[in-house]
C-alpha cells in the first residue's frame, strides 16, 4: 500500500500498462521532455526515461496527433493521447467526433479503435479558454466512452481499464484533484489521494459507487463536485438530514442502476455539476429519471450547475460561477423543507 495522488496514480497506471503491453504508447505535447513537467500536470513525468521510444512528444498540432493516434490504433497500437487542457479537444474535433467516434460503426463493426484520450478539466483561475468542463460536449457523441475519476484509487483502476478497452475512452481529470507537486501545483487543490494496493486491480467502466450512504436525498456528482457534495452531506448530517452521494465515475456508459436504487430509497435527487446548466450532465440524468422514475420522486429534481456563460477570470466571478458547498447545502435544505 502506498498513498498516491491522482497524478501519481495515473502515472503508475500508465507505467504498468506500458510494461504489460508493448503496443501501449503515450502521445502529446511536452509529455516527456527532460527538465520539463511531464505534461501540463506531471502525469507522465519521468516516463520517457523508462520508455524512450513510447513517450512521443508532438508538435502543437492537435488535429494532427489525434489523427495519428487513430491511424496507429488501426494497425495494432494502443495510444494514450494527452491534451494539455480539455479545451484544446476542440482543435481536434473532426478527428475525435467524425473519425474516432465513428470509424468502427461505419465499418460495420469490422475494425477496432482502442484509443485513450486524457483531458484535464476544471474552472481554475485561467479564464474562458482553459477552464471548460468538456464532458457535456462528448456525452452526446455516440461511439466514445467517458470516465471521470474523482479519487486516486479510481483514477488508476479506470485508466487501466480504459487502456485495455477495445473502444475509444475519454478520461476527464480535474486540475484541482491531481495533487501535482512543485511548480505545477495548483492553488485551491483538494486532497484526492488514496491508498493504492500493491496488487493489481481494475475498475470497470460503467460502474458507479456510493460515496456516502443516506436515506433522505440522493446527490449525483463527479470529479470536484463529488467532493463538494460529500462536504455538504457532512454539514447537513449534523442537522439530521441524511444524504446519499453517488459518484457514477463513468458517464458513458452510465450506471443507471445505482442511481435508480438510491432514488427508490430517497425519493429526492440533486445533480451537481461544474459545467453550464443547459444541456449538461444533469439534464441527461434528470430527463431519464423523469421518464423512468417519476413515481418515486417526492420533490422536483434539482440541478446545481454553473451559469450558461463561459468561465470568467476574476476570482470573485469565478467563485460565483462554480457551485460550492454552500449552494449545495442550501439546495438540500430547500428540498427537504418543501417535501417533508
Amino acid at each position: 500500500m502506498a498513498r498516491l495522488t491522482i497524478a501519481e496514480a495515473l502515472r503508475q497506471a500508465i507505467r504498468e500498462e506500458m510494461k504489460r503491453d508493448e503496443s501501449v504508447y503515450c502521445i502529446g505535447e511536452d509529455i516527456g521532455i527532460p527538465g520539463g513537467w511531464g505534461g501540463a500536470f506531471t502525469v507522465t513525468l519521468g516516463l520517457e526515461k523508462e520508455f524512450p521510444d513510447r513517450i512521443i512528444n508532438t508538435p502543437i498540432s492537435e488535429a494532427g496527433f489525434f489523427g495519428v493516434a487513430l491511424g496507429s490504433s488501426l494497425v495494432g497500437l494502443r495510444p494514450i493521447v494527452d491534451v494539455q487542457y480539455g479545451d484544446f479537444l476542440f482543435c481536434a474535433m473532426d478527428q475525435i467526433a467524425n473519425q474516432i467516434a465513428k470509424l468502427r460503426y461505419m465499418s460495420g463493426g469490422k475494425i477496432k479503435t482502442p484509443i485513450v484520450i486524457r483531458a484535464p478539466v476544471g474552472v481554475t483561475g485561467r479564464g474562458a479558454q482553459h477552464s471548460q468542463m468538456m464532458e457535456p460536449f462528448f456525452q452526446c457523441l455516440p461511439g466514445i466512452k467517458i470516465v471521470c475519476p474523482a479519487t486516486a484509487y479510481d483514477a488508476k483502476g479506470l485508466l487501466k481499464s480504459a487502456v485495455r478497452n477495445e473502444n475509444p475512452v475519454m478520461i476527464f481529470e480535474h486540475k484541482l484533484l491531481y495533487g501535482a507537486k512543485g511548480a505545477r501545483s495548483e492553488p485551491g487543490s483538494i486532497d484526492a489521494s488514496s491508498e493504492i494496493p500493491d496488487e493489481e486491480y481494475l475498475i470497470p467502466i460503467g460502474k458507479g459507487t456510493v460515496r456516502r450512504q443516506g436515506t433522505d436525498i440522493t446527490i449525483v456528482a463527479t470529479l470536484l463536485m463529488m467532493h463538494r457534495a460529500c462536504e455538504a452531506a457532512e454539514i447537513v448530517e449534523k442537522e439530521g438530514i441524511s444524504v446519499e452521494v453517488i459518484d457514477p465515475r463513468s458517464l458513458v456508459p452510465f450506471d443507471w442502476e445505482i442511481v435508480k436504487q438510491s432514488i427508490a430509497k430517497t425519493g429526492r435527487l440533486i445533480i451537481v455539476e461544474e459545467s453550464p446548466r443547459r444541456g449538461g450532465i444533469g439534464a441527461e440524468i434528470a430527463a431519464t429519471v423523469a421518464e423512468e422514475m417519476l413515481d418515486f420522486l417526492v420533490a422536483p429534481v434539482k440541478r446545481i450547475a454553473a451559469p450558461d456563460t463561459p468561465a470568467p477570470f476574476s476570482p470573485v466571478m469565478e467563485k460565483f460561477y462554480v457551485p460550492d458547498t454552500v449552494r449545495i447545502v442550501q439546495a438540500i435544505k430547500e428540498m427537504m423543507s418543501i417535501s417533508s
Binding site: A128, P312, F313, S314, V316, M317
Partner: peptide, 18 residues
C-alpha cells in the same frame, strides 16, 4: 485586469491570457 478588477480592460472577465 490581472487582478480581475472591474476597472480592468476586460472588466475582469478575461485575465492575463485574454
Amino acid at each position: 485586469e490581472l487582478f480581475g478588477k472591474q476597472t480592468g480592460c476586460c472588466k475582469g472577465k478575461g485575465g492575463s491570457m485574454h
